[in-house]
Amino acid sequence: MHEFTPPRLAALGNQLIEIHDHLRDLLDDAADLPAFSRSLRAHCLAFCTALDRHHTGEERGMFQVLADRYPQLGPVIEELRHDHEQIAELIRRVEANPTKDELAGLAAVMESHFTFEEKRLVAALNQISPRSA
């Protein structure tokens, strides 16, 4: 879970992109694993856990910081929360049946979510300085 202490807030938008890129890489790595293998199942579980942890951190910290400082982002934050619910459902499906098709579906939704989040939040996050936290 992300901690939102003043030093952590410096360039948080850039850090968000780095976290998303790491999650993208994890998912790309799964594409190289054999279907229905133990390795694919283990990789999917690790990826799903990391993605869930990332979204939980956003819900408990980042979204509240943004809502407090930028009330105009309220509709964006609500849409992202809705995305998190949809992604959580897809994660449950992948955990129950980690096939390449389920993973591809999750990847498509996740990429759309990450791209939207980056376009709408990174600039605001990068404006938050340790002095204003």
Rank of each mutant, 00 (worst) to 15 (best):
H2I: 14
H84G: 13
P71C: 07
L45G: 03
E89Y: 04
A108Q: 12
A10F: 08
L125P: 00
F63Q: 03
H2M: 13
N97L: 10
G74R: 14
L90N: 01
S37G: 05
H43P: 00
V109R: 06
V109E: 03
N97R: 09
D83Y: 11
F116K: 15
E18L: 13
L80A: 12
D28G: 08
F114L: 04
D83K: 02
R38N: 09
S112C: 01
A124G: 00
D29F: 04
C44E: 01
E95D: 14
C48N: 02
L106D: 02
M62Y: 00
T5K: 15
D21I: 06
R24V: 10
A11F: 06
G61Y: 06
L121V: 05
L51A: 13
V65I: 15
R8S: 15
R24H: 13
A31M: 07
T56S: 05
H82E: 14
L27C: 11
H113R: 01
L90V: 03
F116S: 03
G57S: 11
I17L: 07
P130Y: 08
A108E: 12
E102A: 13
F4W: 13
H2D: 09
L51G: 02
L90T: 03
G105T: 01
F47S: 03
L66M: 11
G74L: 12
A10V: 10
P7R: 04
L80S: 09
R60Y: 04
A46N: 12
D21C: 10
Q127K: 12
S129F: 02
R41I: 01
H20V: 05
A88N: 12
I87R: 06
D25Y: 07
T49E: 14
A46P: 06
R24K: 11
E118V: 03
D83M: 01
R92P: 01
R41E: 09
E79K: 10
D28F: 06
K119E: 04
L121P: 09
